[in-house]
Write a protein that binds this DNA or RNA. Sequence first.
DNA 1: GGAAATTATATTGTGCACAACCTAAATGCC
DNA 2: GGCATTTAGGTTGTGCACAATATAATTTCC
Lengths: 165, 165
Amino acid sequence: MQSAETSLDALLKLDNQFCFALYALSRRVTALYRPLLQELGLTYPQYLVMLVLWEAQGQTSPDEFAGVPVKFVGERLHLDTGTLTPLLKRLEASGLVLRARAQQDEREVRLRLSVAGLQLKEKARVVPLQLICNSGIPPDRLLQLQRELQALLEMTLPDEKATKG
Amino acid sequence: MQSAETSLDALLKLDNQFCFALYALSRRVTALYRPLLQELGLTYPQYLVMLVLWEAQGQTSPDEFAGVPVKFVGERLHLDTGTLTPLLKRLEASGLVLRARAQQDEREVRLRLSVAGLQLKEKARVVPLQLICNSGIPPDRLLQLQRELQALLEMTLPDEKATKG
DNA sequence: GGAAATTATATTGTGCACAACCTAAATGCC
DNA sequence: GGCATTTAGGTTGTGCACAATATAATTTCC
C-alpha cells in the first residue's frame, strides 16, 4: 500500500546504510593495525601523528628544522586540540616527541621528533605492507577504494573559511 | 639509489594510506549525522542501536515480542559489552529503551522499545534521505561504495569461531 | 599606542571503543 | 547430584573525538 513509507523504511534498514559499513570497516581496519602498532608502542591516532611528523621532518635538514605547529597536524588529520593536546603529551611522555613554544610567536607549540622518534620510523616502515598482507585485500581494490574515499572526503569537507563576500 | 626503501617510504606517506582516508571519511560522515540526530536526542552509535531495535521490533507482533538480547545488538554492530552496556543505560535513562533480564535465562538482558522509542522511528525516517542530500554525494556512488565496503568488511572479519579441527 | 578582534593552544566534560578482568547463570559430563 | 566449562553481561581503566569554554599572545584598526 504505502509505497513511499516502505521505501523510507528500507532506507532505515541497517543493511542499506552505507554509513554503517563505513563506520564498521573503519573500526575493523584500526583493529588490524593494533597488533602491528603495539610493537611500536603506538595507538592508531598516535601513528597518524607520527606519520605527519616523519613526513615533515624528512623534508628539511635536521639542524634548521623549526618543528611542526600543532595546528598543521590538526589540519592534516582533521583533529582539534581537544584531541591532539593530550595525545601529544602522551607522545612526549613516551619520549618520541618534543613540544616547545615558538620564539617568534609564543602562541604556537612546535613539535619535533626526538632521536627515538626518528628511529621509530625504521620500525614503522614495514607497517603499511604488513597491513596490506594481513588484510587479505587485493592491493588494486585498496587503491581504487582509497581514491574514492579521498574524493568523497574532499567533496564533503565543510567550507574551511567562507572568505569575505 | 635505494629504490626498495623509497617505495616503502612512499607507502608510509600519509597521502597514500587508504586507512587514513577511511578513518577520516568515517568521522566526517558521523559529523554530517550529528545535527540531524541531535534533533532526535541521539548520538550516532545510539542511532545504530535504535536501528537494530526498530528493525527487530517491526518484525513481530508487539505483544509477543520478547525483546532483543544485548548479544544480538553486539553481533550486529560489532560492539562489545564494554561499549554497549553504558550506551544502553543512557538510552534507558532517556526513556527510549527498556532493559530486563529474560525469565528463561537470567543471564540474558533483553531490550525492548518504550512507546517513546517506537515513536521516535517516525522522526528518524527522514534521516537517511536527509543525510544523502546534505552530503551532496551522488546516490549511485554511495550505493557502489557501500557494496565495496561491506564486501571488504566481511572479507576481513576475524574467524568468529574456529570450530573443532 | 591602546582597545578590540583574531589566533593558537589548553581545559573540561560527555560519550564512545576496547582490553582486561569479574560475576553469576546455564550447560555438560560424569 | 556436583563440579568444570561455557555463556551473557557488567566493571574498570585508557585513549580517543568533539563541543564548549578559557587564556594568553598577536594583529588590526583607529
